[in-house]
């Protein structure tokens, strides 16, 4: 089965692998994005994620359909967590099953790249010094 979801709850990795299971599949690829302790050399205490949920879930579904069309993905799970996330936790999951490994790697790679490019989700960095900054805010990240 396919799953396209924005959630405030922890992402259940094991259930995503069950969701993409298929006897026709020779490969499953799983990508997890996790909360990192720095951004461009500045220390970070964690991230806050916001989303425009109805449009974000529609766009996740569209990306999943593209992965099926372009890479022959049999099943796709795309889940993004929102809210305040501490260091180390999973913020985004991409899981695909395909006939062979090449398509699985390619589909997972395109899946996360298209999520980052298109889905209406925003992250705010909680800097180590106590300040906060939305990514892409030109006042917080001046052009270099």
């Amino acid at each position: 089965m396919d799953v396209y979801r924005i959630t405030k709850e922890p992402i259940d990795v094991a259930s995503a692998l069950i969701d993409i299971a298929d006897d026709r599949a020779g490969a499953q690829a799983l990508f997890l994005g996790t909360v990192r302790n720095e951004f461009e050399g500045r220390s970070s205490r964690g991230l806050y994620y916001d989303a425009y949920e109805p449009l974000a879930e529609k766009e996740l579904r569209r990306i999943g359909e593209e992965l099926k069309q372009e890479f022959g993905a049999l099943h796709v799970v795309l889940i993004h967590r929102i809210g305040d996330l501490p260091l180390g936790v999973v913020s985004v999951l991409v899981a695909v099953s395909t006939g062979h490994r090449g398509e699985a790697f390619a589909a997972a790679r395109e899946g996360i790249d298209r999520i980052k490019l298109r889905v209406p989700i925003w992250k705010k960095e909680h800097w180590g010094n106590g300040q906060d900054a939305w990514h892409h805010d030109p006042e917080a990240f001046p052009a270099k």
Partner: peptide, 29 residues
């Protein structure tokens, strides 16, 4: 921008009751 939960173009005619979302550059992942 979106109108009523779907991407919208500059030329979209707005109607009474529409919900418009302003989508600054995204940063998921």
């Amino acid at each position: 921008y979106s109108v009523n939960e779907e991407w919208a173009s500059w030329e979209t005619q707005l109607k009474n009751g529409d919900e418009i979302a302003v989508i600054p550059p995204v940063s998921g992942g």
